[in-house]
Amino acid sequence: MLKIDTHSHIIPEHLPRFADKFGYGDFIHLDHHRPGFANMMKGDVFFREIEANCWDPQVRIDEYAQFNTQVQVVCTIPVMFSYWAKPKDTLELSRFLNDQLAETVANHPKHYVGLGTLPMQDANLAVQELQRIKEELGLPGVQIGSNINNINLSDSQFDPIWEACEELDMCLLIHPWDMMGKRHMEKYWLPWLVGMPAETSRAICSMIFGGIFDRFPKMRVNFAHASGSFLATIGRVEHGFNCRPDLVAIDNPNNPTNYLGHFWVDSITHDPVMLRYVMNKVGANRVTIGSDYPFPLGDLTIGELVDEMALPPMEHEFLYSKAALEWLGLEASQFLD
């Protein structure tokens, strides 16, 4: 059975020194300090160590084969978004990353699908790059952050991007980044354990309450990490909508539960009971296998949790590939011999 991992990250093996080129900023660069490993550096500050499976396409294919997974949807590491930079510089960085991504896909078309990145802080430049990603690079969608320099995705400045996504038939993966409250909870890895789930819920609530799904109903959106804390707190969200519509329903009169099943989420829950709950809420046809590969907080035994749940064949098929193909707007035949 075709198996597609819809959430994984990749980075070019060699990055230009963008900080030197642009003359400012803590742009990421790689320090290849030992064979098969590199330190990701934000300026002079260590961010994390990565291995060759973060950049080597064949290493990744071999590792995925251990889990009978043929196809990886790959996108940049969120720290690379660089929305804080001058828009033209983020555009140049995005173009570099997108070109590298397209080359990987072109060299391994049976194994890779690429999602580009955009200079989201400038809608005109973002739309320009979105068109290039579609028309020149042939990628089916993009990955964006859960907020753009602390501006929620419901803000009207992003409407041209959503409109372009519809017109170009491009899908979206929304990934948490730049977590709220990060500076106040560094200890215990809380930005990743608490902030990331909250960021994804922030993005979903913003888009629902801001009426984004109503104004752009054809836009296909997948939210990382099984929606973060959104589905786990949908009862509270709905209750808030009902009890304080003067605060919550000011831009959209529709109950937030009406949107369950409108968007996709990945399967990264690390808990079969929670994954079953997620499937019950949005439907198996809106859940895609995800791993967050190759990072340790991900579900790196790709699809094993789904296998252990002994799901009915139809649900298995949705999670393995059918839900992903519908979200991506692709056909299974392009990956099969």
Rank of each mutant, 00 (worst) to 15 (best):
V194C: 10
M170G: 04
M170C: 15
D214W: 14
I174Q: 05
M196W: 12
E199W: 10
I212R: 06
G228F: 15
M196I: 10
M196A: 15
K182W: 07
A224V: 11
V194Y: 04
S201C: 13
H184N: 03
M170I: 05
S227P: 02
R215I: 01
P191S: 10
F223L: 00
E199S: 15
C205E: 07
L173M: 13
F216K: 02
A226D: 12
K218L: 15
E199A: 13
I204E: 07
A198E: 12
M180I: 11
R220W: 04
P217C: 11
G195K: 09
G210E: 04
A226R: 14
M196P: 01
D214N: 15
P176G: 03
G210D: 05
Y188P: 01
R202F: 13
A226E: 12
I204H: 08
I208R: 09
P176M: 04
P191T: 07
D169I: 02
L168E: 07
R220A: 07
H184T: 00
N222H: 00
A198P: 04
E199I: 07
P176N: 04
V221A: 12
S227F: 07
M207L: 15
R202G: 08
L172I: 14
M219L: 08
R215W: 03
I212N: 05
S227K: 03
R183M: 10
M180E: 07
W189N: 14
M179T: 12
W189Q: 11
L190N: 10
I174C: 03
C205Y: 02
T200L: 06
V194K: 03
G211R: 08
P197K: 06
K182H: 06
I174F: 08
R215P: 01
M180Q: 08
I208D: 09
A203D: 12
K182Y: 09
D178L: 13
M207A: 14
E186Y: 05
I174K: 01
R215E: 08
K187I: 08
L193F: 15
L193W: 14
A198D: 08
T200K: 10
D169G: 06
F216D: 03
S206Y: 02
R215G: 06
E186P: 00
D178W: 13
I212K: 11
L193K: 13
M170R: 09
A198K: 06
W192N: 14
G228C: 14
G211T: 05
A224S: 15
M207P: 12
L168G: 00
M219G: 00
M185E: 09
